[in-house]
Design a protein around this nucleic acid. Structure first.
Lengths: 112, 112
DNA sequence: TTATCATATGAACATATACTCATATATAAC
DNA sequence: GTTATATATGAGTATATGTTCATATGATAA
């Protein structure tokens, strides 16, 4: 990790000035990480199509209710989904419209 | 995982029809996962500002050359960054413009 | 050739994580 | 009250992952 000759200090300094705070970068990475699991990305995609309760998500993805609940917690913590309780049933939906845009942009990358 | 009363079969069937293939969903999740690490998201963000060689990235983020190389491989595999070799020096840049949009959308979500 | 520089990579290790299982909580019906 | 339903959660476990260290590869210079 010694300073190498190939390093242009000015260029590095330029970029360093533009870097966001560690808190913001942490949140950014954590948001991507929350979406970076097959089960969770399927849940988020499904919720981008329709509001669903926990049992419906489990049935749709053919996984256990417990697994769904655990993953919904991760998504809730990152404010990617929100819940609304009606009696015994808890319905989940995307937290905001940006999540939809995020999905769409990523699909665009994957498709090309 | 028995069928629960709360499940509306028609609603579940509707969403199931809209679900993408496992291959596509896998690629989607893998792309998010590649961005879902603090080191890698910092690298991608830096590259969205300027083309940089491996040593410059290591200097900028204050981490070892080896760690950077390992993470660049992950990003290359997911086609998030591309490399161009000039003599001994390898310069990295974002692979396509969608990556920039992805970053921007995620920042929007994190900022609000 | 030999030496140096820039980068890549394999192995090892410590941490993180996604699931299962069992159980807790909360609501509704009886 | 009891029972059933829907969801949440803690513990345990097997797998995945990010780093370090050592070394390999490849290019340039002497």
């Amino acid at each position: 990790m010694n300073k190498a000759f190939c390093i242009n200090e000015d260029r590095v300094a330029d970029v360093r000035k533009l870097m966001k705070s560690d808190k913001i970068m942490n949140d950014l990475a954590a948001t991507f990480k929350a979406l970076g699991d097959l089960t969770r990305s399927k849940i988020v995609f499904a919720l981008s199509k329709k509001v669903l309760c926990v049992g419906e998500i489990a049935a749709l993805l053919n996984i256990s209710q417990s697994a769904v609940s655990h993953q919904l917690r991760v998504l809730r913590d990152m404010k990617l989904v929100r819940s609304r309780k009606e009696g015994q049933v808890t319905y989940y939906s995307l937290d905001d419209i940006h999540i939809n845009f995020l999905l769409k942009e990523c699909f665009r990358h994957v498709m090309e």
